[in-house]
Design a protein around this nucleic acid. Structure first.
Length: 357
RNA sequence: GCUCCCUUCGUCUAGCGGUCAGGACACCGCCCUCUCAAGGCGGGAACACGAGUUCGAUUCUCGUAGGGAGCGCCA
């Protein structure tokens, strides 16, 4: 090491030696001393390394158990593995392994060393930092299609195409097109893809995944609108199924109290009449569909000569307890007839009580 | 220290000697609008650096810098 050389085996028993009493020997691989090991990596291209850089590595310990670089080769030869795809941290091991393949008289597989994936912050993923199991993404509310699509585009591309169905991935993917550079995971783009799939997949399919999240959150889907209906209106308002679940509670359960800010701003005494008028008109409806709900609200607004803002916001707070929800017709639709009428009455009572103070 | 690998917008990428260096996410602006979104339109934003090769380099070669990996009787 002082001479700037690598620490390595001195070749003491390279040409063979008699067993030494009291010493349990290890077994080393007799690596060629001259020439280069050259291989064509499917993603890196031609890689060449001199045999002088390779040591006579240990392949069996004193107890006879084999070591990694040896077992990997033996195992892959046994299984007739024809293509080895692994992280690029194994590039340095490959020449040693190739020499073992040759010594074994085995056919060489193709090698493809793919770069690793970095975290959102560009730092390497590790157990301590950022690394998670795939199922974590389900827990976090991502659809399988979104994760797959995101991952396939990380380090690989097919022209300018961003959206890939599973079949398209299978048809167009080629390991040779994979990039050599490590890429950073970008959750914002995953979010975008997730929303894309929530919006474009059949609502019923998304609903199946959503049902799992409802169960996790302890919400009974039977206590409100069909999940597919929910998906159709919430998909373009949230990034994940978790958000969708969180923001949809109000359609399945009563809320405790109004958001203070929203109530203060929108449930004012002046809204009593409009709310009462809307409640009355909605009660007369014989069907409860977005289109007629929308017409009804607009008609009331027109009759009272109020802008939609003056009508929709108080109603929104009445229905959901907050100032943010889907468009007012869809909100009414999802809350459902009975629950909507009841909540309007509740808001009315709140407004009247407030006026009395 | 030695060896190997990597380097285009903030991020994911297209490019494979001649392009106004293209797309996507994100960001900014405008439009739409009952809130929040979604959507539409537009905008800013990159070839790490230095030498070569060449009529011409993002592209080919060699250096430099920066980053990563390996140099185990761990996998």
């Amino acid at each position: 090491m002082k001479a700037g050389l690598k620490p390595r085996y001195d070749g003491h028993c390279r040409e063979g030696a008699a067993p030494v009493k009291g010493v349990k020997p290890i077994v080393r691989f007799r690596n060629p001393r001259e020439g280069d090991v050259v291989f064509d990596d499917l993603v890196r291209g031609r890689i060449s390394i001199s045999n002088t850089e390779l040591d006579d590595l240990v392949i069996a310990r004193p107890d006879g158990s084999p070591t990694y670089n040896f077992t990997v080769v033996v195992d892959d030869v046994d299984m007739a593995v024809s293509l080895v795809i692994r992280g690029d941290d194994h590039i340095n091991n490959t020449p040693r392994q190739i020499n073992i393949y040759r010594a074994l008289g085995a056919e060489l597989p193709d090698f493809a060393h793919v770069p690793m994936i970095l975290g959102d912050d560009g730092a390497r993923l590790s157990k301590r930092h950022g690394a998670v199991g795939v199922m974590q993404y389900r827990d976090d509310g991502y659809l399988p299609q979104a994760l797959l699509n995101y991952l396939v585009r990380l380090g690989w591309s097919h022209g300018d195409q961003e959206i890939f169905s599973l079949q398209e991935m299978i048809d167009t993917f080629d390991i040779r097109d994979v990039n050599r550079k490590a890429s950073a995971f970008n959750t914002e783009k995953l979010d975008w893809l997730n929303q894309h799939y929530m919006k474009s997949l059949p609502p019923a399919e998304v609903a199946q995944h959503l049902a799992w999240h409802f169960e996790q959150a302890g919400i009974d889907p039977e206590n409100g609108p069909p999940l597919a209906d929910l998906v159709s209106v919430q998909a373009d308002r949230v990034k994940t199924l978790c958000e969708m679940t969180d923001q949809s509670r109000v359609f399945y359960r009563e809320f405790d109290e109004y958001d203070p800010g929203a109530a203060h701003k929108h449930l004012r005494p002046v809204t009593a009449d409009p709310l009462a008028a809307i409640g009355g008109r909605l009660a007369e409806l014989d069907r409860w569909e977005p289109e007629m709900l929308n017409e009804t609200i607009r008609a009331v607004a027109e009759e009272l000569e109020l802008g939609m803002g003056k009508i929709a916001q108080p109603l929104r707070v009445a229905l959901t307890g907050t100032a943010v929800s889907p468009s007012i017709d869809k909100t009414l639709w999802l809350v459902g007839r009975e629950r909507s009428l009841a909540r309007i009455q509740r808001a009315l009572a709140f407004v009247i009580a407030r006026a009395a103070n």
